[in-house]
Design a protein around this nucleic acid. Structure first.
Lengths: 333, 333
DNA sequence: TAAACTATTTGAAACGTTTTAAATGCTGAG
DNA sequence: CTCAGCATTTAAAACGTTTCAAATAGTTTA
């Protein structure tokens, strides 16, 4: 039905082989012939069938991106950046939105495999009860993998992530340096570098300042989501601290809401600091003091590692830490 | 390199044809044979090559989604919903993020065409200087198109959109009914139903209440973005009104910020109302009174229309309006 | 036992490309 | 003229599937 190269060849009065070579700018085609073929192709609105190309060339030109959500602006920023980067390099990004479910992750792995993706970027889900069932399939098929933002424990593939420990340290130190010493720490009860590193940074700042680590002033939620933080925040308000240190912006916004609703003022009564610096952090009132994750840089390095691996370079491994920086806005006194 | 059906067939001791029929649950295969093939396939981690299937079956199983941005939560919500809907129906969503550029739109059209998408959903860009260059290519190739959220003027394809006029009317009426009569209207200077319908609704509410339409109290920005609204808001503050009626939430948040910064209180001094009800509208302080666009419903209907068109049904045409509803939160007195 | 079914299996074509090796046509040298 | 050498063109194979018509094997029926 659709125009094929056969039609173009016939119309231009050449063989299929010649048409193909002309269209792909291969050497060894007479200049006149080439331009005739190109003209005919344009006139006929010919567009090469990608499936056929992928089949014969043995490369799909696709990269899989596995990620937990997309409505969350942190993740949609990643999609935005990575899809541009992939495109610049001539690849198409295939999305697997897993909704934080390991089953979905496996389903999308199969999907990626069927599309013969040439590499996969994994932004891990947060609560992987059974982790990496999907990864085994990919490894087995020899598909290069690079983790972005966080990785599954025990996996050998490289990961590019923000230096969470450093970020949380700097933020906590900043608060302490401003004279705020009675802190709450709000995080999630999940075993992952995602949380462990942040906690390390927080503790380090306390210890350096000679402050005690008070476990009764730590709020650990099930998931790092707005609603959970909003519910959980009541314990903080029972005996309001001088500042709240939080591991992401979404939860911070929930806590801010609760604080403001209780009639207290930010930052006059309580200071608040988040992590991530999502788009909306600058827009809320008051604008949020937070730790900026340099997503552009993280994604660029992720893509570069993947390209290297796809070109057969010895799988660069290990943890690639990108330094974050504190963005002081108006929620900290 | 990767396992093919040929390998499975050999290992199971059957022909390729039999293997294929077994794997696809076709009738006419002996039960034992079938299960043997399936077992072997599983053991060998066989995953069918989609390109080969697409080629021979003449259907890609892909749907194209053209949209202007993805970081904006309004759009990422659309991606989320539509990708689930597509998947439920056995299709894969291919993303074309155009960055509000007509050139990009054409580029992605070619991309869609090369992937032989079986239908395209278009969420139009806002400032189409030369509109629909991309559409012509799709029409010409016989690819069904459905617009979502808004459509390009003069195009014959169906569109599913929120009843903007109704939403803006209800919102404005609500404000007026609360006794607020000195209003500002904040919109963008773009010719599209996007803006025209909203203005209609606003005007209707004024007229029904016997209030004058004061053009000097209309702020028309170039693009409906945060920064533009933030900059533009100064004129509103010169002679603060009782309420500001805005055509989307992002701009509303910018205006709120300006109002709060000027020392005025929301809603005590000024009421503010937005449109869209994006995820963050409920989270900001104070939570935003806004008109909820029923995106789920809009996307479902969009997908249904596309499916109908793909199955060759007479192209359902015309404008499908989905009624929005006002969500009263705390920015209106 | 032959014939006629039926159930199952299979060979081969087709899908739209790219690529390689071989064929063709030309030019200039001998 | 012939032949080597070159530029250009082409036929055919290959990629991994599905599907259809034909072949095979097995079972009844007459």
């Amino acid at each position: 039905m659709r125009i094929t190269i056969k039609d173009v060849a016939r119309e231009a009065g050449v063989s299929i082989a010649t048409a193909s070579m002309a269209l792909n700018n291969r050497a060894g085609v007479n200049a006149q012939t080439r331009s005739r073929v190109l003209r005919v192709a344009r006139e006929m609105h010919y567009v090469a069938n990608h499936s056929a190309q992928a089949l014969v060339m043995q490369e799909s030109g696709c990269i899989g991106l596995m990620l937990p959500e997309i409505q969350n602006p942190f993740y949609s920023a990643i999609v935005d950046i990575l899809s541009h980067l992939a495109e610049e390099r001539g690849y198409t990004l295939l999305l697997g939105i897993t909704n934080n479910s390991a089953e979905q992750e496996e389903k999308y792995t199969r999907f990626f495999l069927s599309r013969r993706v040439q590499g996969v970027i994994v932004v891990p889900i947060l609560n992987p009860r059974r982790t990496g069932g999907c990864l085994e399939m990919l490894r087995q098929a020899g598909v290069p993998i690079v983790f972005c933002t966080e990785r599954y424990a025990g996996s050998a593939e490289p990961v590019v992530m923000c230096d969470f420990a450093l970020g949380q340290y700097e933020m906590t130190k900043y608060l302490i340096d401003r004279g705020l010493r009675d802190l709450w720490f709000v995080s999630v009860d999940i075993e992952a570098q995602f949380t462990a590193l942040r906690y390390q940074g927080y503790v380090r700042a306390l210890e350096e300042a000679g402050l005690p680590v008070r476990r009764e002033r730590e709020l650990l939620l099930k998931m790092p989501w707005y609603d959970q933080a909003y519910e959980g925040a009541s314990c903080i308000l029972e005996d309001p601290p001088e500042a709240v240190v939080c591991i992401n912006d979404i939860m911070t916004m929930a806590i801010m809401k609760r604080i403001l609703e209780s009639g207290l003022s930010i930052p006059r009564d309580i200071s608040v600091a988040g992590f991530d610096d999502i788009m909306f952090s600058a827009l809320v009132s008051p604008p949020l003091t937070t730790v900026h994750q340099p997503l552009q840089e993280i994604c660029e390095q992720t893509m570069q590692l993947l390209m290297d691996a796809m070109e057969g370079a010895a799988e660069g491994e290990g943890v690639h830490l990108i330094a974050p920086h504190l963005v002081v806005r108006e929620t900290t006194a």
